[in-house]
């Protein structure tokens, strides 16, 4: 093997891309050639330095939102949501609206889809580096962080004393809209509490559903929709929601 060949192949050796035979050839050359050995050492050091530096970029949240928002519009057919909007406005589809069954079926389906998006958002948040935008165990610094980022002010309540540690907050995207996520920890388990605005101000009691092995408990209160998602057991998630609701009630009354 010549030095010229070795100087290209040593990179493949570094990158673990050589089969055993070729790797042996390169190693044999390097054992007898100080210049190539030095080059291999230098390149190995450069790789270490590169691996330690933060060279990746993170896509801005606004870009993620733009792409999410462009997905439904890319559909040639009217979306379910625009059909529903049609019902709400009593427009051209009034004939269909007359059959309440269709509306109910679509609405349920819509909720199922949103549930699946909420679970996907939870999954995404567990991937490295996506969990938290603002890191704080202090509700008074997490809450103001959401100001100006959302059309709602998510209630941020510290439940550390009740066994659920507040770890931070994050902006997420569900149903092509920005949504607040308040992040809690129970032992090593993450709980994402998603909060979005809703037109309905009536109280909807909590209900637990399971999807892809995650428990999701959703409820509605004071014009807000809540989804608590986690891999903790159903009873523990219920406990979390009960304590959250109690604390929220106490906050409002106190």
């Amino acid at each position: 093997m010549t030095c010229d060949e070795a100087k290209i192949l040593l990179h493949a050796l570094l990158d673990n891309e050589l089969d055993a035979g070729h790797a042996r050839e390169v190693e044999a050359h390097i054992a007898t050639c100080p210049a190539c050995a030095a080059e291999l050492a230098a390149q190995r050091e450069m790789r270490h330095a590169l691996a330690g530096a933060k060279l990746r970029y993170t896509a801005p949240a606004s870009l993620r939102a733009r792409i999410e928002a462009s997905l439904p519009q890319a559909r040639p057919q009217p979306s379910r949501r625009s059909v529903l909007r049609g019902f709400a406005m009593g427009s051209a589809v009034s004939a269909l609206a007359a059959s309440g069954v269709v509306a109910v079926v679509l609405r349920q389906d819509d909720q199922q889809r949103i549930l699946s998006e909420v679970v996907s958002a939870h999954l995404r948040s567990l991937q490295a580096g996506h969990l938290i935008d603002v890191v704080s165990t202090d509700q008074h610094s997490v809450k103001p962080w959401f100001n100006g980022k959302l059309d709602v002010a998510p209630p941020v309540i510290d439940l550390t004393a009740q066994g659920f540690t507040l770890v931070g907050g994050r902006l997420d995207y569900v149903d092509a809209r920005a949504i607040g996520a308040v992040v809690y920890k129970r032992r090593q388990h993450i709980i994402n509490l998603f909060v979005s605005q809703t037109a309905s101000t009536e109280h909807r009691p909590p209900k637990t559903q399971t999807m892809q092995g995650f428990n999701c408990r959703r409820w509605g209160e004071r014009g807000l929709n809540f989804w608590a998602v986690s891999d903790i057991g159903g009873d523990e998630l219920t406990e979390f929601v009960d304590k959250f609701e109690a604390a929220m009630k106490a906050n409002v009354e106190g």
Binding site: R56, Y57, A59, R64, L71, R75, P76, P78, R124, G129
Partner: peptide, 26 residues
């Protein structure tokens, strides 16, 4: 039904492609 197919496609696309957003952006 085409609406549902389209929606499912968008959903599959989301799950398959969006996790790589940071890579593509980088």
């Amino acid at each position: 039904m085409p609406v549902s197919d389209d929606f499912q496609k968008a959903q599959r696309f989301r799950e398959a492609a969006l996790p790589y957003l940071d890579d593509v952006y980088t």
